[in-house]
Amino acid sequence: MRPSGADPASSPFSTRFDPALTSFADEICAMVARLFAYVGTLALVAILAVHFWEQLPDISGSREAPRSDWSVADRSAPAFALSVLNPDEKSGTYTILRHPQGGRRDIFRWIGEADRPLAELEIYRFGGEAFSALPPLADLAARMPVGRADLEAAGVIESKFGPIALLARENVRDGAGACLGFFKTHDDAALRLSGWSCQGDGLPARRSAIACMLDRLTLLSAGNEPKLAELFARAELRRQGCGPAGATAASDWITEADNPHLRGAL
């Protein structure tokens, strides 16, 4: 039997812990909890940063870089050509882009002195990607040089492909350096013609350049697309010509500033 009056604290069988050990254990638990909270916060910040970075538009690419998911098709044969009016005409580049979902873009570009953009013509044959592509106005505005303003209507010209809508930058005065855009969609052939011209010193010169550019566009190969072949066959019957005897009366669409024959309202 334990003697009466014995101090429980001095008993060798006591279950009480030293206060210093209890305080140290509490500090360890608190430190581990803070460490987990700190690591968790860092992981959350990293996840959010990656998410927002993926949402940012690609602003580092140049205007000449292929659009997202588009790649240069070096081995594809040219499907279109522009007839040459005279041997002194300035040359340009021809680039073919392809999309994994079947789209194809044939792009003619002309660059002037000091690498100044002169003109562009794009023939876009739709694939599955067309359902999620940029609207025609937004796509054209992104491709046109000089300024970042939205596009506004600038009239209509008649071409061998039918009426062509013209567009210009909002609040941009006409004159040297200004550019005129255009586009025309042919749903039956799943095709869109678009581009721009910065030719000449005024609107008539750029209208003439666009009309002559389209008039000179010819089809080399339609592949397995009968609707495309039919579109160009009908267009050739309406060809006006860019020579002195033609309706547009421009000897060279790169240098002339004559006004084309217009049927649409401006």
Rank of each mutant, 00 (worst) to 15 (best):
residue 106 D to T: 08
residue 196 W to A: 01
residue 208 S to P: 00
residue 140 L to W: 03
residue 245 A to D: 14
residue 96 I to L: 06
residue 139 D to I: 00
residue 210 I to N: 06
residue 128 G to K: 06
residue 13 F to K: 04
residue 64 E to I: 07
residue 23 S to V: 05
residue 27 E to T: 13
residue 226 P to T: 09
residue 124 Y to R: 04
residue 22 T to V: 15
residue 9 A to N: 12
residue 57 P to D: 10
residue 58 D to W: 00
residue 176 A to M: 07
residue 113 E to L: 11
residue 110 W to N: 02
residue 183 F to H: 15
residue 88 D to I: 01
residue 118 L to I: 11
residue 147 G to A: 07
residue 26 D to H: 03
residue 260 P to R: 08
residue 76 S to N: 05
residue 66 P to N: 07
residue 22 T to C: 01
residue 106 D to P: 01
residue 122 E to L: 12
residue 34 R to V: 01
residue 231 L to K: 08
residue 168 A to N: 06
residue 234 R to H: 13
residue 38 Y to K: 12
residue 76 S to H: 09
residue 155 G to K: 03
residue 216 R to Y: 04
residue 4 S to E: 14
residue 139 D to L: 12
residue 129 E to M: 02
residue 66 P to A: 12
residue 58 D to A: 11
residue 132 S to F: 10
residue 240 Q to K: 12
residue 238 R to M: 10
residue 103 G to S: 14
residue 182 F to A: 04
residue 151 L to I: 09
residue 82 L to P: 01
residue 130 A to R: 15
residue 17 F to I: 03
residue 254 I to T: 10
residue 131 F to W: 03
residue 116 R to L: 12
residue 26 D to Q: 14
residue 174 D to I: 06
residue 83 S to M: 08
residue 155 G to E: 05
residue 74 D to T: 11
residue 175 G to C: 07
residue 232 F to E: 11
residue 177 G to R: 05
residue 11 S to E: 14
residue 104 R to T: 15
residue 8 P to F: 03
residue 35 L to I: 08
residue 112 G to V: 05
residue 238 R to V: 00
residue 1 M to V: 12
residue 26 D to L: 12
residue 10 S to N: 11
residue 59 I to P: 00
residue 102 G to S: 10
residue 195 G to V: 05
residue 58 D to R: 12
residue 13 F to T: 09
residue 60 S to C: 02
residue 242 C to K: 04
residue 253 W to E: 01
residue 122 E to C: 11
residue 255 T to H: 06
residue 63 R to F: 07
residue 186 H to A: 10
residue 141 A to K: 14
residue 74 D to P: 00
residue 215 D to M: 03
residue 168 A to T: 14
residue 219 L to M: 10
residue 29 C to P: 00
residue 121 L to I: 08
residue 85 L to K: 02
residue 130 A to T: 01
residue 145 P to G: 06
residue 31 M to L: 14
residue 263 R to Y: 02
residue 74 D to Q: 12
residue 123 I to S: 01
residue 5 G to V: 05
residue 210 I to L: 14
residue 222 A to Q: 05
